[in-house]
Design a protein around this nucleic acid. Structure first.
Ligand SMILES: [Mn+2]
Ligand SMILES: [Mn+2]
Ligand SMILES: [Mn+2]
Ligand SMILES: [Mn+2]
Lengths: 223, 223
DNA sequence: CACTCCTTTTTGATTAGTCAAAAATTATAC
DNA sequence: GTATAATTTTTGACTAATCAAAAAGGAGTG
């Protein structure tokens, strides 16, 4: 239970663990963690041990890692900072939604609670970031909405874009240029299972996305 | 001329060198640099060598250090970021002038040029930060005003507070609580050379400062 | 010039985070 | 169930930044 500095590196590991344990089952593999952070498996193993030592993660060697409650709380707070910062950059500094992720990725580690509190207030206590990701509350609660991956929608469905992954800046630019912004209503024209693609009517144009790309978009069904 | 990462540490050394070479003569001693950064002289020596190696400083051993033009330009840009951030925190996020320095000290190393440009625009291209320090222009020019240390003012002089050192948060709180804010007009009642103190009339109250404290305030003369 | 004092530099160690490559372990195939 | 493949862990090495303490250098005094 050695005390551990909450460096940017540590915070990034915690955030990656939170994300990876929410998608898929639960335990996170060393390899997946290493890939997510663009480090070698050896580096990941060594940080996993450090986190376990500090009581922020459980580690069963050769099996997997999982955040402890303490680690989970810290991770959620980093995510909260990240998303509030993103929204602030878009709403107050009028930055593009495709450039704020990289910026927030740095700022999330240095901005004080005081600043986050004031941004939160100025933004009117928002619940969603510019990409439709939920902003956890100050006491660490996520309000998840029941959304559906666009990749799994059926032909004929009318849906509303509710969330787009912020991980890929150029995909965001592409999406926006074809009217795929938050709140936009689109209609699924057809699916092609063999081609693994889905074709949509957005604005006046028809656009076809591979399933992998479509998977980066989540939607709400429209009446 | 080895390429050097511009880490927070390196930027802080550059900033300290800029500051120390402007006040007093020119060359900076290892000891002063070490004191300014709260590191041991050995650490300072080692970073000085690194900076010299990277072409950011000239170093004549046992004599002193000085920024090269390249190092000077980098340092000024860090100062620009610092001061724009401070003003942004006060004007947009409504933080107190005594809490923004510590915050800016972190943010100055991670905020992108894009963000600085937008803050600058939103603030209306300001020339002074919340403590009256000049904000260098984007191309690195300082506009220095002809100010006078309050510590050297004579009895009877009416002066306007134009600049207060931001290094000491509690001094800023103290100053504000006695009406010593930017633009405030005060009158020097008397000096006591033996006590090394100066007594002022500010608002309705009389207040006495030691020369060292008074030295942290710069003023303009009022007709 | 020689001695002292102060400052600077050097040396050796430490910590965080990383990688490359070897070793160990678990999973898969036959 | 043994061989092979994939994953994970370990080991050894490296870099940035630091400190403590020893060594070296410079300035002033007599
Ligand atoms: Mn993001
Ligand atoms: Mn986001
Ligand atoms: Mn400051
Ligand atoms: Mn300032």
């Amino acid at each position: 239970m050695t005390q551990l500095m909450l460096t940017s590196t540590v915070e990034n590991y915690l955030k990656a663990l939170l994300k990876l344990s929410n998608q898929g089952e639960n335990r996170v593999s060393t390899g997946d963690l290493a890939k997510a952070l663009h480090v070698t498996p050896g580096s990941a193993t060594s940080m996993i041990k450090t986190l376990a030592e500090a009581g922020l993660a459980h580690h069963k060697p050769h099996y997997g890692v999982l955040l402890t409650e303490k680690g989970h709380i810290l991770a959620v707070h980093v995510v909260r900072r990240h998303r509030i910062i993103e929204l602030f950059l878009v709403n107050v500094l009028e930055m593009e939604w495709d450039e704020v992720h990289a910026e927030a990725e740095q700022l999330e580690h240095v901005v004080s609670d005081e600043v986050i509190t004031r941004m939160d207030k100025l933004l009117g206590y928002p619940t969603l970031d510019p990409h439709g990701d939920p902003i956890p509350t100050a006491d660490g609660m996520f309000i998840e909405r029941p959304l559906h991956p666009l990749s799994q929608c059926e032909a004929g469905q009318r849906v509303q874009v509710a969330r787009i992954s912020d991980q890929n800046s150029s995909f965001l630019k592409f999406a926006e240029s074809h009217g795929l912004t938050l709140g936009a209503t689109i209609e699924v024209q057809r699916r092609n299972e063999h081609a693994e693609s889905i074709t949509l009517q957005s604005n006046e144009e028809e656009i076809t996305l591979g399933f992998t790309a479509a998977n980066r978009i989540e939607v709400e069904f429209v009446k």
